[in-house]
């Protein structure tokens, strides 16, 4: 039973990350990129995808519109938006829709 539950959780998490990657690509208009091009753990900012502070605000809008998660403090947001992995984990814990 435990193994089964973990399996469900993992596949759910994988689906969420794939959906999230698709949403990130659309929201930031990362033309030519596919979800599989984004590594779960690669940093989204700085050297990773080369995103900037305005992208981070756009990603917070993505979280609010799609998952009902409102982050008021941009500095708090930066922690959540470390990578697709950290975003997905935060969504798991805080989503309201």
């Amino acid at each position: 039973m435990i193994i089964f539950a973990a399996h469900v959780f993992l596949s759910f998490m994988e689906d969420l990350k794939t959906t999230l990657k698709q949403q990130i690509i659309e929201s930031l208009n990362l033309q030519g990129m596919k979800p599989e091009d984004i590594d779960d753990n690669a940093p989204l900012f700085g050297d990773g995808l080369g995103l900037d502070s305005i992208d981070s605000l756009e990603l917070m809008v993505l979280l609010e519109r799609n998952y009902g998660i409102k982050i008021e403090d941009a500095r708090e947001g930066r922690k959540v938006l470390g990578s697709v992995q950290t975003m997905a984990e935060y969504i798991q814990q805080h989503r309201t829709v």
Binding site: I54, L57, E58, V61, E64, R65
Partner: peptide, 10 residues
């Protein structure tokens, strides 16, 4: 007035 894209404003 909720969840607005900053890019368009900027």
């Amino acid at each position: 007035e909720e969840a607005l894209n900053p890019t368009f404003f900027i």
